[in-house]
Each structure stands twice: as structure tokens, then as C-alpha cells.
């Protein structure tokens, strides 16, 4: 009896400790974001605890700057293209391997691990040395590396979705009902794994959108993305830099919200 009471007391203490730790970590992580966002809307914030006034001036200035809009467009274009190419070429390969050649999955998994194994700096040096002497524009080389670097997200997302819906059986069932392989893929399999695939794509997009090392070292300011623009603004205006970070956080927040909604939807389908 005493042992049970002791154990109960220990569990309660641990629970409280966990809650306190979570709150502290939450504050530690949220405080810089909150401060940056607040700085993006402050008139002056040098000698006081809180900003002296609030303004939309920095956000307005940011969106009036053609360089920012162009950089934003380039980031969207670069990340979007890489994800699009990945969907077009890598995802079908994942479908075929997972559904019809599962024995080959081990090679795919090895490739995924290799993507994690190479740091950005090694990749950059490798790309510069290998492609600088060729006629291939460096931006295309970077796009190619981006396509490969999202492989882990696309592979995990697609494979998990296929397993959740028992993709092979869906294909078999559709074919036995008279569908061609293409019809079965287009009308049954793709809509069934769509939420998972979309989440993987959004995740890949957000990772690429925040990428700085590779693009800066390989292409540099010749192809200014949001991250490079941010680096440039850090030394000129703290308010503008904060406004960029704020816009970036809002964009990522929207993407996370969409992903969470779709993941929830995908879970609903799992029981079928």
C-alpha cells in the first residue's frame, strides 16, 4: 500500500516536472520569435522594455521593395520547381518500387540515408567542382540537388500513405473491376494517398524555402532568394530583417496548418 502511494507520488511529481519543463522550453523557443515579430511592428525599441510605438511601416516597405518581391518569387519558383520535379519523377518511382518491387526498397532507403549524410558545404563544393566547367547553369545544378535533397520527405510520406491505404490491394481491386493500371492509379490510388503526398510536398517545400547554404555558396547573390535577401538586410535594417522573418513565419504557419488539417483527413481514411 505504502509502495503504491510512493509510486503515485513519484508519478505526480514527474508529471508536474514535465509540465514545467515544457512551459520553459516553450517560452525559450517562442520568446525570440515573439520579440522578432514585435520588432517588425515597432517604431523604436532601443531604450525601453517594450516598443515605444507600433507601425505597419516595415511590412509596407518590405512589400514595396521590388527586390524582396523578386527574391520571394525566386524562392517560391526554385523550391516549387524542385518539389514539382520530385513529384513528377521521384514519386512515381516510389509508387512502383513500394507496390511492385518491395525488394528494391532497401536501395531506396540507402539513398535516403545518403541524403542526410552529406552536409550542405560538401554538396556545394562538389557541385562547384563538378559543374563549373560545364555549360549547365549552376541554378539548374542546385535545382537538381534540391530535388534529391527532398527525397527523404517524399519517400517517407508516399510510402507511409501507400501502406496506410494498402495501395497494392487497391490497385488489384480496381484492375479486377475493369480498370486499366493507369485508371486504377489515377482514379483510385492517387486520390487515396493525396493527403499524405500533399503533406510530404509541403514539408519539402518549406525545407527548401528556408535553405541558405547551398544557394548562397553555389549561385550567390546572382540569384537572390528570400534567405539571401534576409542576410543582406540584416546589416542594413533590423526592422526590415524582422519583417522578413515575420512574413516567413506567417507563411510557414499557414503551411503547417494546411499540413495538420490534411494529416487529420488522412487519418480518417486510414480505417478503410
Amino acid at each position: 500500500m505504502a509502495y503504491q502511494e510512493n509510486e503515485k507520488g513519484f508519478v505526480e511529481t514527474m508529471k508536474k516536472f514535465t509540465i514545467v519543463m515544457l512551459i520553459l522550453i516553450g517560452i525559450y523557443l517562442a520568446l525570440p520569435i515573439f520579440a522578432t515579430a514585435l520588432y517588425a511592428f515597432s517604431t523604436e525599441w532601443n531604450k525601453t522594455i517594450l516598443p515605444e510605438g507600433l507601425t505597419f511601416e516595415w511590412i509596407r516597405t518590405l512589400f514595396q521593395d521590388a527586390r524582396f518581391i523578386e527574391a520571394f518569387g525566386r524562392s517560391v519558383l526554385l523550391s516549387g520547381s524542385a518539389v514539382f520535379i520530385s513529384i513528377l519523377f521521384i514519386v512515381p518511382a516510389i509508387f512502383v518500387i513500394v507496390l511492385y518491387f518491395p525488394a528494391l526498397e532497401k536501395w531506396f532507403q540507402a539513398s535516403v540515408v545518403m541524403v542526410y549524410a552529406f552536409p550542405g558545404i560538401i554538396l556545394s563544393v562538389g557541385i562547384i567542382r563538378f559543374y563549373s566547367g560545364t555549360s549547365l547553369p549552376m541554378i539548374l545544378a542546385v535545382t537538381g540537388v534540391y530535388v534529391i535533397s527532398v527525397l527523404p520527405f517524399m519517400y517517407q510520406g508516399t510510402r507511409n500513405s501507400l501502406r496506410n491505404v494498402q495501395g497494392r490491394q487497391l490497385m488489384d481491386a480496381a484492375e479486377l473491376l475493369g480498370a486499366s493500371k493507369m485508371d486504377a492509379f489515377r482514379k483510385v490510388l492517387l486520390p487515396s494517398v493525396y493527403p499524405g503526398l500533399f503533406v510530404a510536398s509541403l514539408l519539402s517545400f518549406s525545407v527548401l524555402f528556408g535553405e541558405f547554404v547551398l544557394i548562397n555558396l553555389v549561385v550567390g547573390s546572382r540569384f537572390e532568394t528570400v534567405q539571401i535577401y534576409l542576410m543582406a538586410k540584416l546589416s542594413t535594417s533590423g526592422h526590415i530583417a524582422s519583417a522578413i522573418v515575420f512574413v516567413y513565419i506567417v507563411l510557414m504557419g499557414i503551411l503547417t496548418l494546411v499540413m495538420a488539417t490534411l494529416t487529420k483527413k488522412a487519418k480518417g481514411m486510414r480505417h478503410a
Binding site: D172, A173, V188, P191
Partner: peptide
């Protein structure tokens, strides 16, 4: 030939 699978293989999107 029709087939009913052990896990039914119903199309979840329909």
C-alpha cells in the same frame, strides 16, 4: 473474375 479481399480493399476516397 471478381474478388473480395481479406481487408476488403474499399476505395477510401469514394
Amino acid at each position: 473474375v471478381g474478388m473480395v479481399f481479406q481487408s476488403y480493399a474499399l476505395f477510401p476516397n469514394m
